[in-house]
Design a binder for these strands. Structure first.
Length: 422
RNA sequence: GCGGAGGUGGCCCAGCCUGGCAAGGCGCAGGAUUGCUAAUCCUGUGUCCGCAAGGACUCGGGGGUUCAAAUCCCCCCCUCCGCGCCA
């Protein structure tokens, strides 16, 4: 959520931002007109309440007709206050809805662009692997080795769900442990949070209301299956105030994520886009002065995983039109998938400035006992498991159909070096 | 799920029965006083509207009653204790 004061002070900045992000400028105009009316009514309500407060003080001292008259007069005032306050509440609800739908302001360093074509490659690592045979796609490898089972996943739940079996399940577990261990050494505190969250949490990180149709909702309890561990981990600190020396706070969390992928057909075969997937997520709460430096650190912490796995990847700086709603700056890490010869987004690292912190009310004190300010929040996947699996399976596949286990994962797989049909 | 006790400003805590400007303490900030420090005293301490003067709001959340609600009534949330259920 943007600072309402900023929108009032500099509406043209917001207008330009909305244009760069392909959002309708109507959001801004709507806000401005609602806000103007809201302020008018607040003022009127305050005047009437003042009148009521003055009378409240006077009435107990009155007697007889004088008292009767004053009371009946105040009855009318109370009625009017009720009406106006109802109108104010109505406007506030409308205004909140508008403000909650206004995206974050991109950092100056973010390129302006309409869609993914405006993104900029800012770094790359490793060489795209060349094969002396035709590399298989991950779902072919998975089925041939009997480590990914799509049919039975669909049987117990539906399309877009899959089962990892045998060495497939073990490989994923090894990846999770490897990631968590690396991030632990980088200074992240491991947390394991609830996977189901309330509406306040999804508002806090910005998924609600804009993305509500992409999330699973438990109607009976009005709870949501988290679409990313970013939600529970960031919202852990809702309504908290940190002391300056507590920052930065860094968390690493392994958690399943759930996405309805509403409105998208099952256009992607395999496990690249699924409804439930594991992810190791990094979340940081930082001082506003160094949030963009911290983004660079976060990015390199996530990159360390890909480097450890020796997977070729590139780093994209997303443009204004392709960036997520709450983000001020985002890097995507894309691993190469030789089966389809495509780049797979395995991580997205973002700085949200105070956008989420304002929604979730996470603050810090710049100086002890002084007035608190909003922290800045960041997060990044470190990494999404299914797509990392795709990259591992496809990059480490051998001509005989087996898959070599990346060296860094072997300690987590009892030294196993190869995944074969056994 | 049942029974009980709770939720009051950054923190602690009174007020609730019996409706009438949220008392007091701690912390912190500014000031006064004082060789220095300590102690003491005064003022301030959250949110919103307003250029300001000023005003409004704020007692877990939402409704209701009332001229007037922290206080009375209803619904809900959370915490703690006990019971129940349970991997």
């Amino acid at each position: 959520m943007l600072d309402v004061d900023l929108i009032r002070r500099d509406p043209e900045l917001i207008r330009a931002m909305l244009r760069n992000r392909n959002y309708s400028e109507d959001l801004l105009d709507e806000f401005l007109s609602i806000d103007k009316e809201w302020r008018r009514l607040i003022d009127e309500s305050n005047r009437l309440k003042h009148q009521r407060n003055v009378a409240s003080e006077r009435i107990p001292k009155l007697k007889g007709d004088e008292k009767k008259d004053a009371i009946s007069e105040m009855k009318a005032v109370a009625e009017r206050i009720k009406q106006i306050d109802a109108a104010i509440a109505d406007l506030e609800a409308k205004r909140d809805e508008v403000v909650l739908n206004i995206p974050n302001v991109p950092d100056r360093s973010v390129p302006v662009g309409c869609d993914y074509e405006g993104n900029r490659i800012v770094a790359s690592y490793g060489e795209v692997r060349k094969f002396d045979f035709t590399p298989k796609k991950h779902y072919e490898i998975g089925e041939d080795l009997d480590i990914i089972d799509f049919e039975r996943g669909a049987k117990i739940t539906g399309s877009g769900f899959y089962i990892l079996k045998g060495d497939g399940a073990r490989l994923e577990r090894a990846l999770i442990q490897y990631m968590l261990d690396v991030h632990h050494d980088q200074g992240y505190k491991e947390v394991f949070t609830p996977a189901i969250v309330n509406t306040g949490a999804v508002i806090g990180t910005g998924q609600y209301p804009k993305m509500k149709d992409d999330m699973y909702w438990c109607e009976r309890d009005d709870l949501w299956l988290n679409p990313t561990a970013e939600v529970p981990v960031t919202n852990m600190h809702q309504d908290e105030i940190f002391e300056r020396e507590q920052l930065p706070i860094s968390y690493a969390a392994y958690l399943p994520s759930f996405r309805r992928e509403a409105g998208r057909s099952a256009d992607t075969r395999g496990i690249i886009r699924v409804h439930q997937f594991n992810k190791v997520e990094l979340v940081k709460f930082v001082h506003p002065d160094n949030s963009f430096q911290e983004l660079e650190v976060l990015r390199s912490d996530a990159e360390a995983i890909l480097q450890g796995l020796e997977l070729p990847y590139r780093v994209m700086l997303l443009c204004t039109g392709d960036m997520g709603f709450a983000s001020a700056k985002t890097y995507d890490l894309e691993a190469h998938s030789p089966g389809a010869d495509q780049w797979l987004e395995v991580s997205s690292c973002s700085c949200f400035t105070d956008f989420q912190a304002r929604r979730a009310r996470v603050k810090f004190r710049p100086e002890p006992h002084l007035k608190s300010e909003f922290v800045h929040t960041l997060n990044g996947s470190g990494l999404a498991l299914p797509r990392t699996m795709v990259a591992v399976l496809e990059n480490y596949q051998n001509k005989d159909g087996t898959v070599t286990v990346p060296e860094v994962l072997r300690p987590y797989m009892k030294g196993q070096e190869v995944i074969d049909r056994s």
